[in-house]
């Protein structure tokens, strides 16, 4: 990455509750997104990846608050920004593509009306004629077949893939600099999923928008992302270039995630590699490394004391590739894989 990143997140923490009942589902997350870059955030349910995304937009669910850290977008501090500044950014410069498009679209308004409404909100200078043209254009860009018909359709009249394309059109029509995509393909079939992934790459190329792509499926990351951020228990455990992280992961958790993908081709293994046990509870994070209780490397090294006593990452959550006292190298990776 060269020059100033478009988005910079440092030491971000999100808290819920008060006093003894305080939980920190996001705890010291840091990453950067450059112009025109696609960054994947990967992790299991409950690792804090979606909350991180919502915190960026200032849209945390009720009771949630940013307890620490900084978010800078295009040189502007987002956390200190007032509601009016945030409103001017949301939709216009930063747009969200939700995971369940069916639920995100208004069921009682035609797709065209929803697109025009968003244009009127974010770009009031446009005339009605221009808005209609832009809406049609956005649907075309989202590769909806027969966009004129889709404009006049209610969401329930569209298939799941077409609903997702409409939601993407809604996000991209204001040509934002940053698109936040929260599991945009999980509700879809594999063949449609592949098309939506390709569409995201096309949009980056056409509009020059950067994309943050949140998913639990590390194999989709390989398809489209330039860099990847792996989250576990509210923290970033590994980040780096996609090829680097996915071919030679340094954190045992990343290696385990990759090992749990069933291989395609050859003789299937008798058992897939799995991470045993469950992630810890956000209300009671363990000290030291949070993955240690499930970590096979920790076990094979004779349960070294550092793992339970000190957090192996950096304070800002960004300056090391892998937050592990004993990161994997080529030979230990082989061992883990066996």
């Amino acid at each position: 990455m060269t020059g100033q990143p478009l988005l910079s997140v440092r030491d971000l923490a999100v808290e819920f509750g008060h006093g003894a009942a305080t939980s920190r589902p996001v705890d010291g997350v840091g990453f950067e997104v450059g112009e025109r870059e696609i960054v994947g955030i990967v992790g299991e349910s409950g690792c804090g990846k979606s909350l991180t995304l919502l915190a960026l937009l200032g849209l945390l669910p009720a009771g949630g608050r940013v307890a620490a850290g900084s978010i800078t977008f295009g040189g502007k501090d987002l956390l200190g920004a007032g509601p009016s500044v945030l409103r001017s950014l949301r939709g216009r410069q930063v747009a969200l593509i939700p995971s369940d498009a069916g639920a995100a679209l208004n069921p009682v308004a035609r797709v065209g009306r929803q697109l025009r409404l968003s244009l009127r909100t974010h770009q009031p200078q446009l005339t009605g004629q221009q808005r209609r043209g832009r809406a049609l254009d956005a649907l075309r860009r989202a590769r909806l077949p027969r966009p004129e018909q889709a404009l006049a359709a209610y969401p329930h009249e569209l298939s799941g893939g077409m609903q997702q394309r409409s939601a993407i059109a809604l996000g991209l029509q204001n040509e934002p600099r940053l698109l936040l995509a929260d599991e945009p393909t999980t509700a879809l079939d594999v063949s449609i999923q592949a098309e939506i992934l390709k569409l995201l790459v096309h949009l980056r190329d056409e509009l020059g928008s950067a994309i943050v792509f949140v998913t639990h499926d590390i194999s989709t990351v390989r398809e489209i992302c330039d860099r990847v951020v792996v989250m576990y228990a509210g923290q970033v455990v590994e980040q780096g270039g996609v090829d680097e992280v996915l071919t030679s992961p340094r954190h045992p958790y990343t290696a385990a995630l990759l090992g749990s993908i069933p291989p395609l081709g050859g003789v299937p293994p008798e058992q897939l590699e799995t991470v045993t046990g469950m992630p810890p509870d956000p209300g009671a994070w363990p000290g030291g490394c949070r993955f240690q209780a499930r970590c096979r490397r920790h076990l094979s090294l004779g349960e070294p004391e550092e793992c339970t006593s000190t957090w192996p990452g950096s304070a800002d959550g960004i300056s090391v590739q892998a937050a592990c006292h004993f990161p994997l190298d080529a030979s230990s990776l082989e061992e883990v894989r066996r």
């Binding site: 590769r143 909806l144 077949p145 027969r146 018909q149 889709a150 359709a153 009249e157 569209l158 298939s159 893939g161 077409m162 394309r165 063949s191 449609i192 592949a194 098309e195 390709k198 569409l199 096309h202």
Partner: peptide, 20 residues
């Protein structure tokens, strides 16, 4: 698979659009 994309994308919705 990217080579497939231009063909696959418009085709995929064709039948659903017809259903609409």
């Amino acid at each position: 698979s990217a080579a497939d994309a231009p063909a696959a994308a418009p085709d995929a919705g064709e039948s659903t659009a017809a259903a609409v």
